[in-house]
Design a protein around this nucleic acid. Structure first.
Lengths: 275, 275
DNA sequence: CAGTGGTCTAGACCACACT
DNA sequence: GTGTGGTCTAGACCACTGC
């Protein structure tokens, strides 16, 4: 069949039947001498699925159509859909379950409670220590400082929410988090709502605000706490802490959260796997 | 074709020709009521390739046989070999290069100089700051303490090498590393040899000792330096440092190195990507 | 049982690198 | 051109889930 470099049109052209069938018609010739930027079919399918994900056609936790169905919709073979779904599943956007279907990944009911938190107790596994106690210290609306605005893709002065909370393990304050959220998507978020919700923040963002975090980057440093941080973590001023600055992104790689965590690492450590 | 759960025998049974052909004969029935542990063909092929990698049949940097050739050798289709190679490539054990072949991954000529070092300068990319200056402080032979022995899979008292070095960026000491290596595989390693070698330690391990590190885990904490560490890093005693304890593994997931790094994070940070 | 994802094959053709 | 990996298809069958 033809494997053209042309992008998939909104509605796929008609496909042949018996023999290997062209799913992509020979689109209009390239506009100019630019690089053709060959993109394989499965990659274009992946893009289309991603669009449906972004557009909310399938919600977190729901099943997406079967591979056969998608193959029919996009006029490609099942194998091609499969490769697209494979990559999305590898990126934790979809979850395959044999015999049941393929589902949109979710932070809810994700038995691993904290998807992005890599702090674990030094001995034993984190399941032995039980869930963290969460205390919301503050949740206020304010105007974005220039650095926060830049990191969130906003303009300085735009409305942002700032949340501060403390996580404790076995009654011991261990994590102090400050986070900033764009005011628009998170309109209506209050300290009370945060306190009442049972589940992770990211699960709340997903179910209450339709914002699903997909990816994040972290910058880690060692720092000393200021007096206020000391009192919140009930620690000495000369206790070194891990500073973890996280930027979390939604589907379209748009930053939707900035979070700065201070981790006490005398009984826990940040675990990382390198490949 | 038949997709049995039987493991691939040393020499694959004869395959049919025209129709979908059985690569796995119906092996002897299961010994007892244990779980059959179904393993797909491509997964078994992956294991065989891994064995060849471990056994040194193909050395780092070399090309492995073409997919067609491997398909012939293992009596399976090219697609099955492909899936096996795909997974090994995803795990950074192999590197595919279109039009050229598939190569055994290597730490040498790996233009990204430090495969496992995630400390990067705060501004700009690491390419602008140039290579690190390396200074070997010490390299001595000793008997393994019980904790080191355990982590390396040795017995307490076995011979180990301990190396200490400092990495500087732009003349500024930034990283202090202590590392322990099993005495056997690294017999003959000296401070001089380390100093003279141009390239990363892992490249040296690979070319001079035939030990290729494939995977690693890190435990990260914030700590304060002791006086000796202070003087080596030319820093104040109250400067918080990142403590990074790494265990690096070879092919068979056997630990082959313990490394404890102290990172100065005033001008650099540890960068991590979460998916 | 039907429906879903998962595996395997065989064959065709494309993109790329080398010679 | 030849050989390599890369894409795509069509069809068959297996493994798992739930009705």
């Amino acid at each position: 069949m033809s494997q053209s470099a042309a992008p998939l049109p909104g509605l796929a052209p008609v496909a042949g039947a018996g023999a290997p069938s062209p799913a992509l018609a020979g689109l209009a010739s390239l506009p100019s001498g630019l690089t053709p930027a060959f993109s394989p079919l499965y990659s274009q399918i992946k893009g289309l699925i991603l669009q449906s994900l972004q557009g909310g056609e399938w919600k977190p936790g729901e099943a997406i159509p079967s591979e056969m169905e998608l193959a029919g919709r996009y006029r490609v073979s099942q194998g091609t859909v499969r490769k697209a779904v494979d990559e999305l599943a590898a990126g934790n956007l979809l979850v395959r379950r044999q015999g049941k279907g393929t589902f949109v990944a979710t932070h809810v009911e994700h038995h691993v409670q904290y998807r992005f938190l890599k702090l674990i107790p030094d001995e034993g596994d984190s399941s032995t220590e039980g869930p963290a106690q969460r205390e919301i210290i503050d949740c206020k609306r304010l105007r974005a400082a220039s650095d926060v605005a830049r990191a969130l893709g906003l303009r300085a002065g735009d409305a942002v929410l700032q949340v501060r909370r403390v996580l404790s393990f076995a009654g011991r304050p261990t994590i102090l988090e400050d986070l900033w959220l764009p005011g628009g998507p998170f309109k209506g978020l209050t300290a009370e709502r945060l306190s009442l919700y049972h589940g992770t923040m990211y699960a709340l963002f997903e179910t209450e605000f339709g914002v699903r975090m997909v990816r994040a980057t972290e910058k880690i440093r060692a720092v000393l706490p200021d007096p206020e941080q000391c009192s919140l973590l009930k620690t000495q001023p000369n206790t070194p802490l891990l500073s973890v600055e996280r930027v979390a992104y939604t589907y379209n790689s748009a930053p939707m959260e900035i979070r700065r965590g201070l981790y006490l690492t005398d009984t826990h450590h940040y675990r990382n796997e390198l490949n």
